[in-house]
Computed example of a mutant assay.
Amino acid sequence: MPPQRAGIQSVEVGFGLLQVLAASAGPLMLRDLAAAAGMSAAKAHRYLVSFQRLELVTQDSGTTRYDLGPAALKLGLASLSRLDSVKLARQRLGPLMEQIGQTLALAVWGNQGPTIVHWEESPQAITVNLRLGDVMPLLSSATGLCFSAFMAPRNKAHNAPQNRLALLLKDELARMQKLARKDVPRSMAEVNTLLDEVRQRGLARVVDTLLPGVAGFCAPVFDADGHLALGIVALGSLATFDPDWDGPVARPLVQAARQLSSDLGFDAG
């Protein structure tokens, strides 16, 4: 056994609260958060006060529920950007962008859904209000459709990310139904039909859905265990972006994603 080094026990105890929030499907009341972390509400509250000052945790003034804060997001994004899959993908975006002439991005699964962790803008790109750390909608973006389709394959055992995905899909579908949007699925049956098409094509696409006059593709990249590691996103104005499934944007994007998956040890069989 390696020798035990001295540490700060209170830091280790407090981190348990952050772990509970990270694993939770949503914000938590103090009593539930404390119970899940195995401590009293009074003790948990003292830690949470400090975490709020550091912006690791936020508290909703209306519901009084706690959730992870912006500092936790920054730490998570920094860690995700250092993953081997993201590093390898970033190295390949430059040549791919030169080939297809469109803005490219990388997205990974975060606590709130598919999250943009890298962005390379083409010189001919339109201006879009997207930033690093933005969480993409599941039903109206190519990124969201890609993660929805490939994170929850049929006939697979559910795990925490898939359970979280199911909850987010349900919530977003309810919001779209209230808005009476006709450009996105309006029932879970329509969602499943659309996700089946994404799986069959190996690529997700939106046209005029996320932003007017804008089209986008997202191609999945898998790791050696067959898990979705990230999505490679191409985005552009319909004035210059060819949205054809077999066009000059889609083909190189799919090829790049398949090659990266292979290099990460994925065997497509």
Rank of each mutant, 00 (worst) to 15 (best):
T193N: 10
F147E: 01
A250F: 00
V13C: 14
A174E: 10
G133F: 12
G213M: 01
P248A: 12
A6K: 13
M176G: 05
L169W: 13
A250I: 02
F150T: 08
L210V: 12
F150E: 07
Q177M: 04
L138H: 11
H45P: 03
L104Q: 04
F51M: 12
K178H: 14
Q4K: 13
R164I: 08
H45G: 07
A105Y: 04
V191L: 05
G94H: 13
L77V: 06
N163S: 07
S148D: 09
A224G: 02
A239D: 13
F51Q: 05
F241H: 00
A160Q: 14
P95S: 13
R199W: 05
L80E: 14
E197G: 11
L230G: 01
L17I: 03
L88D: 11
S148Y: 12
G7T: 14
R186T: 08
R251G: 11
V117F: 03
G7M: 04
Q102N: 08
K178I: 12
L130W: 12
R201P: 00
A125H: 00
D267K: 09
L145S: 09
G94V: 11
T63L: 01
A25E: 11
V184G: 08
L195R: 01
R92D: 14
H45T: 07
V214I: 15
E121F: 03
S261D: 01
G38C: 11
